[in-house]
Amino acid sequence: MSDQALVNQPPRRRFAAIGPIFRRIVREPLGAFGLILVVIVVFSALFADVIASYPPTKLSPAERFAPASFQHLLGTDHLGRDLFSRVLHGGRIALAIALGATGLSLAGGILLGLIAGYGPRWLDNLLLLLFDAIKSFPTVMLALALVTLTGPSLLAVLAVVVLVNVPGYARIIRTQTLVLKSAEHVMAARSMGAGTARILAVHILPNVIGPILILASMDIPVVVAIEAGLSFLGLGVRPPLPSWGAILNDGFVNIRDSYWIVVAGGVPIILTTLGFTFLGETLRDVFDPRLKRRQ
């Protein structure tokens, strides 16, 4: 109650609190671990050209199936391409797709969610029907259908991921917008004569965006996995572009003789997924401790 409010009162304004949030993430062992992993992945993807000594697509048939050595830190694949370089560059693609797709999904989800939540009832119903229709479609089937139409490409992967993610985000934003629509501070703004755009941008959006940002950070590993999965099936990034999923596929064929190819493709996926998941969960706990206690 009132006493509790006194006790829980945060010291400073919310947006200036990045320092303390960082400290609280680092204080959690899993959070610190996740942060380190994410930093490594992002760093190596950003500076892939500098770190790797071979271009990722350079063939050298003489060195096919070479195990790890000082020349090739992770060995080479069936075409003699340097796996270390392919893994780093594959990380670049994985992150670009993950961040790009998540960003686009967020933008689309927020926009549609606000419209559904604040707009007229019929529009809300229509959008909900649309969300449900997309949700009820299995992701892989959707991807197959799209790829059949357009052929495998980076863009197709992006489109599938965005299409699949938007309904989830939009639903969360819609529900919260519906609640806030009749909240007193929104009524107060309306009674002052504020227009719809102002109400949505100033009085609703800042209050609904927090949970969805945390959700998005936890969705990044899912997108990484989807990209790898589609590429593994040959539906994603087109060869010879490096992708973790494609590397996995290459290694899968030759797993009996050259196990390191699968390792090179698999380990980064696992580490990236773990890193973002731990970071996302810690972020969620820091921002909303109630969720942590309930679990």
């Binding site: 007193e184 501070h185 009524m187 107060a188 009674s191 002052m192 504020a194």
Partner: peptide, 27 residues
């Protein structure tokens, strides 16, 4: 002008008092 029941709840939670007081003029 209208005043609502909940003293804290009728103020937009992410706005500073300055923005809250400036809002009528902005609108």
């Amino acid at each position: 002008s209208m005043m609502f029941q909940d003293p804290v709840g009728s103020l937009s939670p992410r706005l500073s008092v300055r923005s809250l007081l400036a809002e009528p003029f902005a609108i």
